[in-house]
Design a protein around this nucleic acid. Structure first.
Lengths: 195, 195
DNA sequence: GTCTATAACAGGATAGAC
DNA sequence: GTCTATCCTGTTATAGAC
């Protein structure tokens, strides 16, 4: 009988959903419990009944988000496309430039020092890096990329590129900076690739 | 007679110096006027006598920082080294990994929407980008880089790489991620360069 | 110009009724 | 489980004496 009807969402779920949106929109520090309450339609009693603190609800929300995004990243790379094409497509994947990466945006906040926040962030980064590294490695095995290329290191560069591209887009308030950052890197990759 | 002795620093200067340190350490939102007062040894009366608001003192402090860092970046690239070597050296320039880029760290805060904060940030980014683009362009004219390479676009990628490298270093609490991100990019550049 | 004192408000959380 | 009411603290200033 599972899934035959949509169960009424519990206040707990509504609180978590509101927190997920706020973490993306404004980050952790700028998100007040009051904001969560207003957006979810729940009152303080509900919030502190289900979660001991702001950090706790943010941590659970972020873990959910990381799970989702790790899964969709794995999906994206489970493709029949040529490995280097998968990488190219991933770099130009449509992202929400206005809000930037929901994980990367948290890194410069004080809260990154708590494991509740840091763990889901690095879990997401690890997933992206691993998928990129695997595709680059396959491309090397195919002979599309030169055999002496360090694909592990390159995957770190590409992850940094994506994160930095988001920073530039936001600073300049212009998403085209993100795409140009990707293009520059792709030109280099194409430059070393065997057709 | 200018510069013959060190004048006693005014409270105004002490307030600005404290603000500069705090902006780097904790960012704008997490920096309270009280923090500025404690670090500078000045009381609220002094702060609000010299500056109308927290945003005003932060804006002036950031403009000073941008001026300094634009000048030192220009200096760095005023070198006799081969253009591509200057780029390589810039990427591996020792940065404070624990604190990250003092400008980039502000981009994900709400305050980036105010021109007082955004302008010095983009001024610094522009200076880095311009210097990188010029060096890459010289390398192309020399024949060190292929003639069809879009050096403007590549300079944006390298700026993004630097910013993103800082994000990874902070997320993983390990500065070696920054260096590895740079290495991956350098390997690509060397791959397309003519010896 | 610098100080002390304090106001007005928001953030983070608790108490206790229902 | 959810609500209303409330508490304590920190933030961002302002007032006015010196």
């Amino acid at each position: 009988m599972k899934g035959l009807h949509v169960p009424k969402p519990s206040k707990r779920d509504q609180l978590l959903d509101a927190t997920k949106e706020l973490l993306w929109d404004v980050g952790y520090e700028a998100m007040s419990p009051r904001d969560i309450q207003d957006r979810s339609g729940a009152r303080p009693g509900s919030l502190y009944h289900h979660f001991p603190s702001k950090l706790a609800i943010a941590g659970e929300a972020l873990c959910d988000l990381a799970k989702e995004d790790v899964a969709s990243t794995n999906d994206f790379f489970s493709t029949d496309a040529a490995p280097l094409d998968a990488v190219r497509q991933y770099l130009f994947l449509k992202r929400d430039g206005r809000r930037g990466c929901r994980f990367g945006r948290l890194v410069n906040e004080t809260s990154i020092e708590s494991e509740e926040i840091r763990r889901p962030v690095t879990a997401y980064f690890d997933a992206v890096r691993t998928n990129l590294a695997q595709s680059l490695h396959k491309a090397k095995e195919e002979g599309t990329l030169p055999p002496d290329l360090d694909t592990e290191t390159l995957s770190i560069s590409l992850l940094a590129l994506i994160q930095g591209g988001g920073i530039l887009a936001k600073a300049y308030q212009d998403y085209s900076y993100f795409d140009r950052a990707m293009e520059g890197a792709l030109a280099l990759i194409s430059g070393v690739a065997r057709a």
